[in-house]
Design a binder for these strands. Structure first.
Lengths: 157, 157
DNA sequence: TAAAATTAAATTGCGCACTACGTAAATGGA
DNA sequence: TCCATTTACGTAGTGCGCAATTTAATTTTA
């Protein structure tokens, strides 16, 4: 497959595979967001907003922290994002009565209704990816695996 | 490696799997950038900057457009990024004499030297991911595959 | 109970990433 | 030659994503 090295520099040995994996994961992630973008536009959602809505459709009234743990995002990212969802009328942000440090994110009726429309998005993605369910499962598992290993190495900081 | 095929793929039932794949790719991409971040910090590079440098170490004097095609980025993203690399003294931006629309990105000595230091980063990533070469290859190929399908569906817009 | 430590969100600042738009240089007719 | 079109970059505005700091509420400890 490779044809154009050993030209002038042979100093570089095999960073190629590592680099290729970098490019692959980077490109695949962007490919996902690009594919979703036109599908989500009619719903008025960005891709990260869609992911937040997915977690809320699974479980309503979550605290910001819980959403952040699910998606690997912190309050610096979520606070403004959730405010935009609130402005769009999809969620409300309510202080927890028991622990007033927490803000619970609650779906509005409009937010709940949106999940029906979003069902079509999921179908479309499956079609665009041209994946069987087993392919999706394999990829999901492979990604979870490498993600898990990457994140477990570091936290011992 | 994969043995997870519990046949019975007709269960078109839940959006769960689609959601899980979303979360997986999203999380894995972020896990990559987070793992790289502390390793790249001593080099003064962000992850996207590192990817740009990788392409330049493979081939110097590329035009902005060529780099963009390699990484799937456009000039709106690359122009400010390349300016920061220039300010860091790693590259120069030179107008092409033959076609003055193009700006060629040229490694400085400092930029070339940096590739030696970066070699250590690549080792560290392999270790952090705990991956064999085959695993990395499999994942790369799976990602390329799905990315290719995603991007080929859309452009017929 | 008061002080200290911990925790949850929000805020700030910087760097991507994309869309839309603008400028200038090359190109391709008539 | 002229002029419309295409191409290569750049800028502006919006929205993530993260680190560091701040504010406020809760828990711990003395």
């Amino acid at each position: 497959m490779q044809k154009r090295h050993t030209k002038s520099e042979k100093t570089r040995e095999p960073p190629r595979l590592e680099a290729q994996l970098c490019f692959a994961i980077y490109g695949a992630a962007h490919a996902f967001t690009r594919t979703y973008k036109p599908l989500l536009e009619p719903l008025g959602l960005t891709y990260p907003q869609y992911l937040v809505m997915l977690t809320l459709w699974e479980e309503d009234r979550q605290a910001v922290k819980a959403i952040g743990e699910r998606l690997g995002l912190d309050s610096g990212t979520l606070s403004p994002l959730l405010k935009r969802l609130e402005q769009a009328g999809l969620v409300e942000r309510l202080r927890d009565k028991q622990d007033e440090r927490q803000v619970r994110i609650v779906l509005t009726e409009k937010g709940k209704t949106l999940s029906r429309e979003a069902a079509g998005v999921m179908q479309a993605i499956g079609a665009a990816a041209g994946c069987s369910l087993e392919e999706m499962e394999d990829l999901r598992d492979g990604l979870r695996e490498i993600k898990g290993r990457l994140l477990r190495e570091q936290p011992a900081e």
